[in-house]
Design a protein around this nucleic acid. Structure first.
Lengths: 237, 237
DNA sequence: ACCTGAACACCGTTCAAGT
DNA sequence: ACCTGAACACCGTTCAAGT
């Protein structure tokens, strides 16, 4: 037995060989981000979480940026775990894909903000990406517009969800301050902002998630409409 | 005259009183972000750009985060300079507002990524926000849905533009790597990704800005459709 | 009143040394 | 083969000192 330090710190022993794996490091990173937030995701703290030295992670990832990429990949793996396309229900498939990204990002906002634009089409979510294309084909969207609508759905899911995550990591106080900014502006110049003032009561009751859902419905309504027009041979003009 | 140093550095003099103003600091920050990128935006480098000590900025901003908020505000001020609602053309007004945000964000991608979720409805863009509400009213959208569609347009413009900016600050090489990821995946498991493979040629030709424009058109088509239904007294069911 | 510069507590990363 | 710890070049921020 070693003599305990006066500070009461646990006497850390050298880790056994192979104790650190990329998977464990990514899991610890995600937990750190979820529980402590973006600012806590540093190599020293990650090392402490793992019971290892602050530099031990460099044996498994070339850089912190490399680790961030792995965390981003983990996020999408989690999002599309057990995903299956909903067969003929093309609209259900597209909603499912977008909701999975949204739910995962909002559950891990700090990790989602880091992942941000680092994801377009990695490996984990390829199956979902392929299903989106299949769903649009089932809907009756013809080439080459199909590729464009695929990008609309993919970008919507990733960019909008990333934006929602960004809101989430702001302090509650900051969120509140931003919410009241325009009310102050209206108080000083009521004639300039009459339109906004008229709907202020309604605005307060809207959640960001509801806005996401509404935008998705609007996009899918238009896609369905264009598919119907394509089926009857009409032009878009 | 003072003796020049061997290294050839310009002998910096003490700045005259009032040489630093919040406006000049924000301008220098934006220029630094535009020309050198996100990683170059540090207090030491900002100080050097201003010809001042690295800590001089703290006489005008409480923290770097405070400065970031001011940069974000400047971005939206620039976006809505000379903005005027397009009168009866509600659709034109909404397109103009969204395009202004997109153009500004893509022109200042590093600053846009920093601003990211720090903006909802600040002061500079209140006029545009009010115009969006007015345009939706002109279109014939009734309360209380109007507030919801306002949020759809506002979130679309800010979140999607922020996402585009995020793509822009990635190295070209990384962008290229992400573009080819799925092609590699298809090569190893062609039967799983047949749908994607079929449209790969079309996908390569799509620019992110075009996706933004298309998504906006889809959103506005659906909003117009719902406004028409509301005018004829039909339900959404 | 405003700017300077030493100083502090961090951070990511490298590399020789341990086991 | 993998982990450690000293070390380096940074960073944001504070504060006493200058002018």
């Amino acid at each position: 037995m070693s003599t305990p330090k006066a500070s009461g710190e646990a006497p850390r022993r050298r880790l056994p060989r192979g104790a650190l794996t990329p998977e464990r490091i990514v899991t610890a990173s995600l937990a750190l981000l979820d529980e402590q937030g973006l600012a806590a995701f540093t190599m020293p703290r990650l090392g402490r979480t793992l019971g290892a030295d602050q530099t031990a992670v460099y044996r498994h990832f070339a850089s912190k940026d490399d680790l961030v990429l792995a965390v981003a990949d983990r996020l999408l793996t989690e999002a599309f775990e057990d995903f299956e396309p909903a067969g003929d229900d093309w609209r259900g498939t597209l909603v499912d894909v977008c909701q999975r990204v949204r739910t995962t990002y909002v559950s891990h906002p700090a990790a989602a903000v880091l992942s941000g634009p680092r994801i377009t089409t990695g490996s984990s979510e390829m199956k979902a990406a392929d299903a989106v294309v299949g769903a649009l084909r089932t809907a009756g969207i013809p080439d080459p517009e199909l590729a464009l609508y695929y990008r609309v759905i993919a970008d919507f899911a990733l960019l909008w969800s990333g934006g929602l995550a960004g809101f989430r990591i702001l302090d509650e106080s900051i969120q509140e301050a931003e919410r009241t900014t325009w009310a102050t502006a209206y108080a000083t110049a009521p004639d300039q902002f009459g339109n906004l003032h008229a709907i202020s009561g309604d605005l307060d009751r809207i959640e960001s998630e509801q806005v996401f859902d509404t935008a998705l419905e609007l996009l899918l309504d238009s896609i369905a409409e264009r598919a119907a027009r394509a089926r009857t041979g009409q032009d878009t003009a």
